[in-house]
Write a protein that binds this DNA or RNA. Structure first.
Length: 199
DNA sequence: CCCTGATTCGC
DNA sequence: GCGAATCAGG
């Protein structure tokens, strides 16, 4: 494979979107993540500042070239948000007490998924912290399709499979588990963390 | 172990 | 220019 104009374009797009080199490589096909990284550097866009996403405030470690940065590329990515979030709290250590649920009167939970894939917590009570983490993680999800899942990507389904607003979390699964840390938290509940029958 | 990007250097 | 190998982290 060669770096055609289109492939380079896709590379630029995905890179500025914050996609990892390996993901870009998979998307492009026929190249490794090394190739992608190499190309990225050759293109001189090691800095991922493109206006979209959180400004990394990256310290330009090496930029002896006061090159003008031609990046008036506005990316009007319309994102349908089925789940209205309260507010973008960065790293809520633990506000202490808050009602994580009871914010969407009409809406059901954000994790419908009627398939046997996700072990639904049924009527079990999940730690509010875990739920908060899940909804928070959704924003960072890679939004992978079914075929993009690997053995080490979180297979937690998000959204409604019947609509377009459906994807898999795709974040790195922490262990031999099928989910990322956040989703493991709600998937595998320590049953009744109240049974301390210490012998 | 899994992953990430960064750099080098033979091609 | 290209990218595998390697390096240096998380």
């Amino acid at each position: 494979m060669s770096w055609t104009d289109e492939r380079v374009e896709l590379l630029k797009k995905m890179w500025s979107e914050g996609q990892s080199a390996s993901q870009i490589a998979k998307e492009l096909g026929g190249v490794t993540r090394n190739a992608v990284i190499g190309k990225v550097h050759r293109l001189g866009l090691s800095n991922r500042a493109a206006g979209t996403g959180p400004a990394p405030a990256a310290a330009a470690t090496a930029a002896p070239k006061p090159e003008a940065k031609p990046k008036p590329a506005p990316k009007p990515e319309a994102r349908a948000k089925p789940a209205p979030k309260a507010e973008p709290a960065e790293e809520p250590e633990d506000t202490g007490s808050e009602e994580v649920e009871a914010r969407s009167p009409a809406r059901k939970q954000i994790i419908p998924a009627g398939q046997p894939l996700p072990p639904q917590p049924s009527a079990n009570e999940i730690s509010p912290e875990a739920l908060a983490k899940v909804s928070e993680v959704e924003k960072k999800s890679k939004k992978l399709t079914l075929m993009e899942l690997t053995e080490r990507t979180c297979k937690w389904p998000v959204g409604d499979p019947a609509t377009e607003d459906f994807w898999f979390c795709g974040l790195p699964a922490q262990s031999g588990k099928p989910y990322c840390e956040a989703h493991v938290g709600v998937a595998f509940q320590p049953m009744s963390a109240r049974r301390d029958r210490r012998r």
